[in-house]
Amino acid sequence: MRPARSSPARTGLVHLALIVWTIVALSPVILILMNSFKSRAGIFREPLMPPTGSTFSMIGYQTVLGEGHFIRYFGNSLIVTLVSIFFVLLFGAMAAFALSEYRFRLNTALGLFLALGIMIPIRLGTIGILQMMAASGLVDTHLALILVYTAQGIPLAVFILAEFMQQVSADLKNAARIDGLSEYTIFFRLVLPLVRPAMATVAVFTMIPIWNDLWFPLILAPGESTRTVTLGAQLFLGQFVTNWNAVLSALSLAILPVLILYFIFSRQLIRGITAGAVK
């Protein structure tokens, strides 16, 4: 028996509202992607029409790939993001294991100390960070960004992973201890594989703000050789502000990798948010 049956009219209104917001959310993105494949005349004369035989043009992409160093910027973003994620996951999982597995005097205090980093943005320490990086000669290196992003990602990673590690059966771990496995083996061989889904969630959560960050690349690594794609796009857009073909293509090139990754990982991401928030 299901007393709550919604009428067709109400269902229709629900879908209408959802479709309206879908259009609001997607149309700007589609507009940019669509116009990036058009000639200048096409962009201005019929901005709302998809590219046709007469308006189709790749001139924007040719300019972007010819003038900018987007391939290098992509490489930089990729290195910084992947290495940061690796260390966030490794260090975060190790700390999460220590905090969730063992009882020791400073456990709660250290948990609170790390919790500070979830709420207080690392940006507020920028001046101190820049002084430190300048003093150690790390300005304009990948390492500077990797260190900052690792520090930024660790607090949330520890909390999400600790939550999941508590669910790993204690019997399993104790059985391993009786078999004489070391704590390190238990962590790397037993616990880590079991929390792999949570690690994927943390990876996606960590990846988005790093890939999209403008502040730290602008301040710590503005040089040509370490420029990330977000900063590169920002500078390129400022420089080519009147070349609409190039601007639209640069925007599309920056949008596409994120969209592709999102469609690959969206299930993981949504499951992660759902699981985390239910707690």
Binding site: L90, A95, L110, I122, L124, G125, Q152
Partner: peptide, 26 residues
């Protein structure tokens, strides 16, 4: 007890050195 330190230290060092100390300096 030693394992606890080994597990905790990398995260604590990076977090303290790159986030907490610069914040305090600022």
């Amino acid at each position: 007890r030693w394992h606890i330190a080994v597990f905790l230290l990398p995260a604590l060092i990076v977090y303290t050195a790159i986030m907490i100390v610069p914040l305090a300096q600022t």
